[in-house]
Nucleic acid binder design. Sequence first.
DNA 1: CAAACATGGTCAAAGTCAATCAAATTATTT
DNA 2: AAATAATTTGATTGACTTTGACCATGTTTG
Lengths: 267, 267
Amino acid sequence: MLQYERFETIMQMLNTGSSVRVTDLSRALGVSESTIRRDINDLAAAGRLRKVFGGAVPLDNGEAPADGTPAFAGLPPKHMVNTRSLDLETKETIQADEKQEVAAKAATLIEEGDLVYIDAGTTTGSMIDQITCTGAVFVTNGIRHALRLADRGLKSYLLSGRVKASTEAVIGHEAVDSLGRWHFTKSFIGTDGIDRECGLTTADIDESMVKTEAIRRSKEVFVLADGSKFGLVASVTFAPLDAGTVITDHLPDPGYREQLKLVEIHK
Amino acid sequence: MLQYERFETIMQMLNTGSSVRVTDLSRALGVSESTIRRDINDLAAAGRLRKVFGGAVPLDNGEAPADGTPAFAGLPPKHMVNTRSLDLETKETIQADEKQEVAAKAATLIEEGDLVYIDAGTTTGSMIDQITCTGAVFVTNGIRHALRLADRGLKSYLLSGRVKASTEAVIGHEAVDSLGRWHFTKSFIGTDGIDRECGLTTADIDESMVKTEAIRRSKEVFVLADGSKFGLVASVTFAPLDAGTVITDHLPDPGYREQLKLVEIHK
DNA sequence: CAAACATGGTCAAAGTCAATCAAATTATTT
DNA sequence: AAATAATTTGATTGACTTTGACCATGTTTG
């Protein structure tokens, strides 16, 4: 195992847990305690962690090191993230600004007393931080979404069902069933593609079932789609074009204007 | 457990409660009273808390509101510990090693073909990383648990219901309802307290309902409890002592041996 | 006052540390 | 391709730190 890999692993363990011990690391990485000690010393010298007797702990946030001390080349970058969730993290940066705008607009539509369904997905996820209305109830199939909603002190419910790791969503027929008791006033749905012929499409059949049912059970439906989604078609159609009001930052083809209920954001 | 972690935990407890006792800390952290005394002395020397006879209080601007907090006025059993208010990260560091051992043992009990329920909680959470059996199906009410299970490529299902932010669990009667379809071969339940009189207890009534129902729907039940849980009583009893097999690292009082189905871990 | 409890000091045992050195690995030169 | 240099690693060492048990002393409570 390369030194760099150990550095990565140690930092990752510190990010997720709150401390690491020399003994545990030695066992976990299959190297001697001497080596772990050296690693911890290096990382501490580079200002990436705090050495304590028996192991190491993450830096207190105020303890951030001066950036001008890159004493050790070959350390993983500071903004290193959990590699496991990299897929989703990467996805979140794609068209981030546009998604943000669309999400911000959508968030303003939530009113006191609403029962809101928020679909799993990155665009709908951005909504959560921008919700100001505290008097609504939220239902979602996005696992991260549920955590963030609850964290913000909003009343939130999660659907049951199979967990899909890559999108961190709850999906499948069980999720559809557990939608059965709800009647939403508003639902906010993400989409992988909007196309004149194929309607609203997504990549996963199990996710599409949940979207379709949520739309069916909702009085008002909003589809969140940044401009890049127009003209794209994914494997499964979950609703026709006119199933809801589309919120977008940019309409590449004016021809859609006649077929869509539309909220366009003008900067 | 690292000294540093104890420091953090003690300060955390002081921030959320108004005082801590040497006896309780010793019990909660699983170290001797000598050690706690030393810790308190160190923290006091560092000017981070105020030492008082029997424990410590925060050194906030307004003088500490002495003993006799109303929460403990109503004659709860002597050893009652209030871990409810601790955030999840702190909770995770308490007795971390012991939990790990208990969790490791529990993980070995899962076999091919099992339908396993994993209760939300930190001890049960440690199980997940140690599960080797890939041929089982997992159901949980722990939101992080579900993500980690799925991340590890294990087939996992999440219950529906209200999301409780502080424990990152799905709870309430809806969660109980969504247990309705399942019949588990094995379930792994965490507990806040094990007491001869009060049985298995937990701090939250809505969490207790879920635990009770999961136990009812399970052929085999395993209760995960590190040694520090014995003799503790939390607000709500969710099952009698003999509801399942208790897995523990250490039995402080041999008297329990006659009342429990027991798996004891010997190092 | 007496019983119960809390405290700090001492000690032995266990755990952790940095320094050192030889073996193994990797990089560079010949 | 072989030889050499540089680096990394694991084992060992003695010094140091932390820990839990014990106990004489001090404090609280009824």
